[in-house]
Nucleic acid binder design. Structure first.
Length: 116
DNA sequence: AATTTGACTGACA
DNA sequence: CTGTCAGCCAAAT
C-alpha cells in the first residue's frame, strides 16, 4: 500500500462513519490495518478541505481523548468542526478555555477491524 | 543526507 | 487535572 492508497483507504473509512457518530485517528488507522499510522491519518485529512465526491466527513474524526484538535490559533478549523458536529446533532461540550469535547460513551463509533 | 514536524496514542508521574 | 516520555513514520526543511 503506497501513499495514494493510504489516502484512499482513510477516506473510505471516514465515509463509513455513521451520522451523529465520531471516532478517533488511532481507530481509523486500526480499521485500515495500520494501527501505528495515527499521525498520517491526520495528515491525510488535512489534505482534504477541498470538495470531494462523495464528500468526506472529516469532522467526525477527533482525538482519542474525545477532544477536537485545535490546530493553530484563532477560531479556525476546530470551531468550524464543532459547528459541523452540532449541525449533525452531536453534543459538543465547550469549557471556559474553549475546549471542545464529545462524549464517546454516547457518540463514539469504534467497530472492530473486519466487522466492516 | 540529516533533522525536525505533525489535525496522534498510550503509559506513567 | 497537567506534564513528560517513548513509539511511530511520511513529508517538509
Amino acid at each position: 500500500m503506497d501513499g495514494a492508497e493510504f489516502h484512499a483507504a482513510v477516506y473510505d473509512t471516514v465515509r463509513l462513519i455513521p451520522p451523529q457518530k465520531v471516532t478517533s485517528y488511532g481507530h481509523i488507522a486500526k480499521l485500515i490495518g495500520m494501527p501505528n499510522r495515527s499521525r498520517h491519518v491526520g495528515q491525510a485529512l488535512k489534505f482534504l478541505t477541498a470538495e470531494t465526491t462523495p464528500p468526506v466527513p472529516w469532522y467526525r474524526v477527533i482525538s482519542s481523548s474525545g477532544t477536537i484538535s485545535s490546530r493553530g490559533p484563532g477560531t479556525t478549523g476546530a470551531q468550524n468542526q464543532s459547528n459541523e458536529l452540532e449541525a449533525e446533532g452531536v453534543e459538543v461540550t465547550v469549557g471556559r478555555t474553549g475546549e471542545m469535547k464529545v462524549d464517546f460513551s454516547v457518540y463514539g463509533w469504534f467497530p472492530e477491524p473486519g466487522s466492516i
